[in-house]
Structure formats: C-alpha cells, structure tokens
Design a protein around this nucleic acid. Structure first.
Lengths: 154, 154
DNA sequence: TATTGTTATACTCTATAACTATA
DNA sequence: TATAGTTATAGAGTATAACAATA
C-alpha cells in the first residue's frame, strides 16, 4: 500500500482510494482553470465544447455532446450560451433537418486559441516537477481509467 | 506528446490537457461510486466526511472540512444531513465552546465500513488491468498534483 | 479582533421526463 | 418507431457575504 503522507493522515481509508485522489486533483486543475482563463468568463465545460467544435467544424450538437459525455438536454443551454457570447454559429445540418451543425466564429476561434495557449502554459507550470516520462505515464494511466467508462442508460 | 487515440480524436487540443482527462476519469469513479453504494443514499462527499471522522473521532467540524477542502458554510448542511441520518453525533468541544466535536454513531460506523469494503472491491475491479506497480505509480503522481493545490482565499 | 459555526443565496454541472419536428 | 433538439425541473457541489457566539 502506498504510504500515507503527513498531509493526508487525517483522511483515513479515503487516502487509499484512487477515486478520491482523482477528485481532488481534478479540482486543483479546475481552480487553476478559473484563475487562468476565468476572467473572460470561460469555464471548463464551455472550453471543452469549443475545442471539439474547433477540431470538427460543422459537428452536430449531439455528436459534440457525446464526445464530451454531456447529455443532449444540457448541451442546449451550453450551446445557447456560446452562441449568445458570439463564439459559436449554429447552422442547419445539410442532410438532416432535425440536426444542427456547429462552427466557431472568428471571436470563438480567437477566444479558444488564447485560452488554449494560456492553459498549456499553466499546465506546464502545474506539472513543472514532472519529467516528460512521468507526464506521459500519468496521462496514459488516466486514459486507461477513462476507457472503463460505462455507457449511460439514457 | 502522447499520441491521440481514435476514441479521443474528436477532442482536439483538449486531448492533450491533463486537466481534462483527470476530470473525465474522476467522473468514471463518481459514477461507479453511485452504482456501488448510491443505493443507500451515500454520496462521495458525505462518505469522505465519514472517513475523516472515523479516522479522527472527536474532530472539529472545521478541521474535518479543511482536510477535505470543504468550506465551513457547506459543512454545516452536510453534517446536518449525516446527523439526521443517524450516522454522526455532534458534541460540544471540551476546550472551545464555539466548536463542535464529531464522532460516528454505531450506525455511521457500520454504514461507513460496509461502503468502504464494497468501494475497495469495486476499485479493484475498475483497476483490474493495472499492475500493482502501475497503481502505485498512478496514486503517487496524482498526489503530487494534489500537493500543488492553492490555499483558498476565504 | 479573530475564529467557529450558521444562514441565505447564487452558480455550475448533471440527471430525468415529456415534448416537437423530422427521419 | 426512432432520433435530434428542446423545455422544465431537480439534485449535488461549491462559492461568497453577513451574522451570532465565543476566544
């Protein structure tokens, strides 16, 4: 068993659970996100949506949500917000009149790229004491956990 | 840079950000928590509180919250819930009449121990394809991220 | 003055159910 | 019938500000 550190000895069994530590570590990145790009009102989830649209111009709303594990009902509000902020354009999908194709506006692209470069910079700072190999190992192990995700019942 | 997998090629830059993957992996554990012990209405945060109290009988409400990164204002409601569920006892602190000392009731201990053993079992399943060394590495790397947490401004 | 707990409140993310319009 | 998007609503976690009692 991994030895309990002084800092965590108050946690009890919790300190041995990977799920707990993932939660706290995720929160560290979340706070850092807020400090880094929160000033412009960009949050983690909307930023993630911008990234998916940037990488897949014309992607449908449902597909974008699916890539991120966001339910359709919740995508509506999030996309509304991004459209109202002038970051995303909605267009009817060419082949399916029920569907909506999403693209970034010039402003959206600019916001996304600015946020991205600052986030990468901050992530480099946050992981400054990680060797490239450790960083590679970390992301590889985390991805294996993600792969265990259960499909939603919907 | 870590190669992009097929599964994640829709994510764009996001796929290179450790923060995003931590968030998704944490969510996998969160869903698993719900499937495992959600039936009794036990959630991640209340469970974490039970663990801290179990490891530190008589701990003050504020200290318990601090160990978990939960703000004082939010602890009140959470402790109320655990007291009403019969899992936690409140007692005035011996040396400070402003403070409250928390202990587990018999029911709280039983609930906590049952949940713990099932959670460990499920965590073992979720990480079944991790070698002991990989698991050790994972938790060690995550703890180093946690250590980068910024103190709250309060 | 500072700290412990409390109340009230707001925001974000997530979840479910019922609806519409298209397929 | 099934799917894409929508609306409404609720639950959970977190954040801030103002307050009472005590230190």
């Amino acid at each position: 068993m991994t030895p309990t550190t002084d800092r965590n000895e108050a946690l009890g069994v919790l300190d041995a659970l990977v799920g707990y530590h993932l939660r706290r570590a995720s929160s560290v990145f979340g706070s850092d996100f807020g400090r880094t790009v929160g000033g412009e009102g960009l949050r983690q989830v909307p930023f993630a949506i911008l990234s998916v649209i940037a990488a897949n111009p014309g992607i449908r709303q449902g597909a974008a949500g699916e890539a991120l594990g966001i339910k359709r009902a919740n995508m509506v509000v999030l996309i509304n917000e991004l459209v109202e902020a002038g970051h995303v354009d909605r267009a009817p999908a060419a082949d399916d009149r029920r569907a909506i194709a999403l693209t970034l506006t010039a402003s959206g692209r600019q916001t996304f790229e600015g946020a991205t470069s600052r986030l990468i910079e901050h992530e480099d700072q946050l992981l400054a004491d990680f060797t490239p190999g450790e960083r590679e190992t970390l992301i590889r192990l985390i991805r294996r956990i993600e792969a265990r995700e259960q499909p939603p019942g919907d």
